[in-house]
Design a protein around this nucleic acid. Structure first.
Lengths: 342, 342
DNA sequence: AAACAAACCGAAAAGGCTTTCTGAAAGCTA
DNA sequence: TAGCTTTCAGAAAGCCTTTTCGGTTTGTTT
């Protein structure tokens, strides 16, 4: 059988194929399939059957061309491997995927040139809107006000206050973390955190100190800024214990630092959580669940950030216009590493 | 100025806008912009200038409608949060993004119904092909042979040998891991691994045992299957040391298990790597870099899997037809947790 | 039976682009 | 100058769908 086209090469059926098979015009076929009211029930059924037989799927390109809306959005992330892009991306995909919207994924690899390239390509495909996902909470350059479609920034806010940005509330995150430690009866609290070049580090710290101040307390020492790593957590803990042996809680800038802190506490004979409570930020499961004991952490609710961004984009496409930075609350996930003083 | 449309609402320029501004017909404008040879240089320049002035981007919908190819592909992942989808997705995005292809991302959340729904939606958008990314290496149900576009499976192979699947070579991964340990002079090697319900666990094990057998060795005890967690790593190590105190290397089924193993070795007074070498699989940076010492691990080269899948899809779209399971090599990333016996 | 309304179906245009084909102008040869 | 070839520009068709509008059929009313 020297057949030119195998089964999997055959062109998808078009509406006129369906119409021909059903013995009606394309106009009627279209109306029948789209539930328009100007077709007899019997005719509609013939069309539906024909469409079924040919496994007809309406060509969204043609539809989009006509409607002026494509039902697609661009998701522009700056680093896919980053820990933070993914949950946001999931939330957005989730919010969109339920409906009729498809998502173009683009990874700019943190390169502004490549980002610009992707924006152009997406606009060429006539996306209805864009979500820009950053990898850290520091403000990033705006894509500009002249874009023909709405844009929502997620996690990393735009530096233009006219843009709409959805971010986790880092200050509040620090605050609720300390509130939890206070609720556990801890009063001699240390704070070991990451790179001070990150806004997230500074804001979490700010919220933590504010919550302490509200309780009439100060940390046992100045917050220790360093790196976002287990190694820094270990090193800082050694220093901390040498100077402030009476510490009863350590608030860590992220889960990796917390892992390092807990390791050294254990080695120095401190029991967690009995002697010292420890908590982190980010609630990264691979770190929180494997530790001894499992780590209490502040979840940034990133999926919710993604969903909120998607919904905001929806309403912006519909004409609703918001701007500024909207900060979403975080939540403490309590595990074994924090407990009331007995 | 009661202007109806703000700057960001204006419709994007069309080719006929460009043509009008340049004082030519749309046909000429099209030819000018696409480098066709039937336009005078001077005319072409006028068109190019006009396009520039209007920041014209050709509508890819219209183009795709005409060409029968859209320059889009669907990336169907079964769990975005999964550790393995992301690098593959990056590799694919990378391979595509360089050119003229845009990627629709869909997450089926491991649900077959939702997957089917996404496939339909993607076909409606006339994607040129599909990549299906799984979350584990066990075979998964094929999408079927009757799809109008080519499909490539990545990481999780299709259960239909007529489909093309790109996977990491798990057997070889086990083999090269043991080869590395042997090269370090280790001979009393234990194997602690994860859930035996996972093909990856069984195949890595198989490769490891084969390499040992090739060297005329057997492991110090039967491989211990359990869970993919630090907790299991710790528990299994305790059992191991009780029975085989003379072990000089532990090959772990993944990096999390390896972390648990190393923790208990340290607590039992074994030095890593001097007394016992430890290695894992997956090369998950957050785990390998934070441990003491940094963990040697087998990298599955997942980005390469993604790139290979993208390239395979390209050539399939072009008509090239391959099938079966293609296994790509892995590589050992040597860090501080393995070293030659001194 | 005539007149009218209602129900149903189809022709055609639109959306933005590419491509083919036809036509006009320019340049060349004899 | 007549006749030829090149070179360049435009008209129109086509891709697939939706929607408007006009036309035909059927049913209802007097």
């Amino acid at each position: 059988m020297a057949q030119a086209t195998g089964p999997s090469r055959s062109q998808p059926a078009t509406l006129s194929d369906v119409a021909r098979l059903a013995g009606v015009s394309v106009a009627t076929a279209s109306k029948a399939l789209n539930g328009r009211s100007q077709v007899r029930a019997e005719t509609r059924q013939r069309v539906v059957d024909a469409a079924e037989r040919l496994s007809f799927r309406p060509n969204q390109l043609a539809r989009g061309l006509l409607a002026g809306r494509t039902g697609t959005v661009g998701l522009l992330t700056s680093d896919l491997e980053g820990r933070f892009s993914i949950p946001i991306l999931m939330g957005a995909e989730d919010a969109f995927g339920a409906g009729e919207v498809a998502v173009f994924l683009c990874d700019a690899r943190g390169d502004a040139i490549r980002e610009q390239h992707h924006v152009r390509a997406l606009l060429g495909r006539r996306v209805d809107g864009l979500i820009v996902v950053g990898s850290r909470t520091d403000p990033r350059p705006s894509l500009g006000r002249e874009l023909p479609v709405p844009v929502v920034y997620a996690y990393a806010p735009s530096d233009d206050p006219e843009d709409l940005s959805i971010v986790p509330d880092s200050v509040d995150a620090g605050r609720i973390a300390v509130t939890h430690l206070l609720a556990c009866g801890r009063t001699r609290i240390a704070h070991i955190t990451g790179d001070p070049g990150y806004l997230a580090a500074r804001e979490r710290s700010e919220g933590a100190l504010a919550a302490l101040a509200d309780a009439g307390l100060t940390p046992v020492e100045e917050p220790r800024f360093g790196a976002w790593s287990e190694g820094w957590g270990r090193a800082a803990t050694a220093l901390l214990l040498d100077r402030h042996a009476d510490v009863d809680a350590v608030l860590c800038g992220n889960d990796q630092i917390a892992r390092g802190v807990m390791d050294v506490l254990r080695e120095r004979g401190r029991r967690v959580p009995e002697d010292v409570s420890v908590m982190g930020f980010d609630d990264w499961n691979v770190l929180t669940s494997g530790s001894r004991p499992p780590l209490t952490s502040v979840d940034l609710n990133l999926e919710q950030v993604g969903r909120a961004a998607a919904h905001a984009l929806f309403s912006a496409i519909g004409g609703g216009r918001r701007s500024g930075i909207e900060a979403l609350p975080c939540r403490v996930v309590i595990r074994g590493s924090t407990a009331p003083l007995s």
